[in-house]
Measured scan of single mutants.
Amino acid sequence: MATDAALRRLLRLHRTEIAVAVDSAFPLLHALADHDVVPEDKFQETLHLKEKEGCPQAFHALLSWLLTQDSTAILDFWRVLFKDYNLERYGRLQPILDSFPKDVDLSQPRKGRKPPAVPKALVPPPRLPTKRKASEEARAAAPAALTPRGTASPGSQLKAKPPKKPESSAEQQRLPLGNGIQTMSASVQRAVAMSSGDVPGARGAVEGILIQQVFESGGSKKCIQVGGEFYTPSKFEDSGSGKNKARSSSGPKPLVRAKGAQGAAPGGGEARLGQQGSVPAPLALPSDPQLHQKNEDECAVCRDGGELICCDGCPRAFHLACLSPPLREIPSGTWRCSSCLQATVQEVQPRAEEPRPQEPPVETPLPPGLRSAGEEVRGPPGEPLAGMDTTLVYKHLPAPPSAAPLPGLDSSALHPLLCVGPEGQQNLAPGARCGVCGDGTDVLRCTHCAAAFHWRCHFPAGTSRPGTGLRCRSCSGDVTPAPVEGVLAPSPARLAPGPAKDDTASHEPALH
């Protein structure tokens, strides 16, 4: 009773807030009518008042009428009001819900409408889902798969039609296919003929059939049928067999079959498995989609049935006599038709004709302190090069084509190399640097090759510096006499390219 009084008091307290929050009759008014909170006449009256005075006034009048009803109607109103779709449509209802007392429970059932309790003993237990329907569909599909699609060729003596089998029958139906081979029951999904010589313990000319048996419980189990008994694959494991010639990621696949039913060829011909030897223990289905393919039931050349050999690369099948050149017997292992072999060759040939990528240039590290003349020119003028003790990398590039010797140069053309002071002394051009340390401070000019250098860098042994005729380390061993002091540049003949010694390969005349 306390809860009923509290709900009535809360409705009177929030009546105006609810009326202002509800700006549309749908969905709240319609939901109240659906849950029998508002009768039909009051529903029509509220809609009429909404058209006349507006939605807030109409709902305020409806809530005032609701306060005169019993506690069950008020409880049902609060339940409908706080439904998710009403809270989404009328956003101003959320503060009312947040301020609702926590001790007021809106989930209690309506009085007088409590459903009768059902004894637990009368409640049926839930049924577990079964796979009976899938099993029945598999039974119905198996006879259809064994139905012949056409008439065999005159040369083929193997013609068999499976008798119709009602689904209610649980007995196995067997077809006489000759040579002791028996087909599987209607619940078998796949059958492959297997030679009895590969099964340990088999006697006589009995041949087993590799099947997948579907049981009534819905589970499946792969086994071997020899005669009327089934054997699990673990009985046929043979770890010492060295003649297993397995197909790549293979499961067994029928390579020879008669049109209309699988079996042995007439005249004692023995149908073979995809792999010879003992049956392997793992009978998992292969991951290669080509091995799941269903080959055609007629020859791809003459479009006739009979004894066919199936290609492992495509769905086509052929007569042995229709092949070019014809085959006398079934080859062992994987067999592919000429079209598949030709496609494989065409895929391999473009790969062989692809040009080989060019090898990157060989990189040879230079000892610290040495650099090529090109690196000396590329440096920024007026700045010493940083990191001189790091190992430089010199790339061996292809030799350029031989060019004509340089033409003779006048001494005026070499004027930018040297600057003559007032006393006739050779001065260095701006930006000249030593080729060893890279520093341009207090550098000297070689009178023979006009290269800038430090005496301490080229002659670290402490050799005394002569007063005139300074030469760098590369030119100090040259027998050519030094030019007379005061000459602007060496003779043009000295600039012609010539053979250089091994220790002077990195010091070429550089223009500054």
Rank of each mutant, 00 (worst) to 15 (best):
R272M: 14
P109A: 09
P176F: 15
G251H: 10
C55P: 05
Q44L: 06
M194L: 10
A258S: 06
K131N: 02
C55N: 01
E167D: 11
A193M: 05
S196F: 02
G178Q: 03
K161D: 12
K120Q: 03
A58M: 01
A19Y: 00
E270G: 11
G242E: 02
D23I: 02
V226H: 05
T151C: 09
E216R: 00
E137R: 04
L28D: 00
L177C: 06
G251V: 13
Q182C: 14
S156I: 14
F100T: 00
A264Q: 05
L122Q: 03
M184S: 04
Y231L: 07
Y85E: 00
A160G: 09
K245I: 02
G178P: 05
V37H: 03
K165Y: 08
K120A: 07
P39K: 00
S153V: 08
R92W: 02
E137T: 02
P129N: 08
G228V: 04
P266D: 08
R132C: 01
V188P: 05
R79S: 04
S71M: 04
P233Q: 04
S249A: 11
A170I: 07
D41I: 00
E229N: 04
R92L: 01
A140W: 15
V118H: 15
P27Q: 03
D84Q: 03
G204P: 11
Q262P: 12
Q173G: 07
Q262R: 08
A246D: 08
G178I: 15
Q108G: 04
E216L: 14
A21T: 01
E17Y: 00
N86Y: 02
E270N: 10
K164G: 15
P109M: 15
S64K: 00
V123N: 10
Q108V: 07
D4A: 05
F82S: 04
R110G: 14
P129S: 06
K164T: 07
Y231R: 06
L177A: 08
L47V: 03
P143F: 13
I209T: 02
K52D: 05
S169V: 14
R247N: 09
R132H: 04
P176I: 15
P39G: 00
P200T: 09
Q225S: 10
H30F: 02
K111V: 14
V206S: 06
S195F: 02
K159V: 11
Q212P: 03
S135R: 07
D238C: 13
P115Y: 09
R15F: 02
Y231M: 05
L273Q: 15
E237I: 08
P125Q: 07
E270L: 14
V192F: 09
K245L: 04
K253V: 08
G208S: 06
G240M: 11
H14W: 03
A144D: 03
D105Y: 15
P254G: 03
L29A: 01
G112P: 12
V226W: 13
P119L: 08
R89F: 15
L106S: 00
H35L: 01
K235A: 05
Q157F: 15
S195H: 10
G197H: 05
G54H: 02
Q57N: 01
P119R: 04
S220E: 12
G218D: 08
K259E: 06
K52C: 00
G268H: 05
P125H: 13
I211D: 08
P163M: 08
D198C: 06
S24Q: 01
L122G: 14
L63P: 03
K111A: 15
F26C: 01
P148D: 07
Q212W: 01
D36H: 00
G227F: 01
K245Y: 13
S156L: 15
G218V: 11
G112E: 13
R113V: 05
R203H: 02
K164M: 15
T72S: 06
V38T: 05
M184E: 00
M184G: 10
Q108W: 07
D34C: 00
P27N: 03
H14C: 01
P27L: 04
P148Q: 12
L75P: 01
L75N: 10
R113W: 06
D84W: 15
T183N: 12
D84C: 01
A142H: 04
S153Q: 05
G242P: 04
A142D: 11
D41R: 02
L63W: 04
P56M: 00
N86T: 01
L146D: 15
L75C: 06
G201N: 10
V226Y: 10
P233T: 11
H30W: 00
E51S: 00
P124L: 11
P148G: 03
R174A: 07
L11R: 02
P95N: 15
S99H: 05
N179W: 00
P101Y: 02
W65I: 00
I211F: 02
R110A: 14
S217A: 04
K221E: 11
Q172G: 05
G227M: 00
S249I: 13
E137L: 07
T68R: 03
P95G: 10
F215Y: 05
F82D: 03
S168N: 05
L13Y: 14
V20Q: 00
L128C: 13
A134T: 01
E237L: 12
L7S: 03
P166F: 15
A170D: 07
P166R: 09
V256D: 06
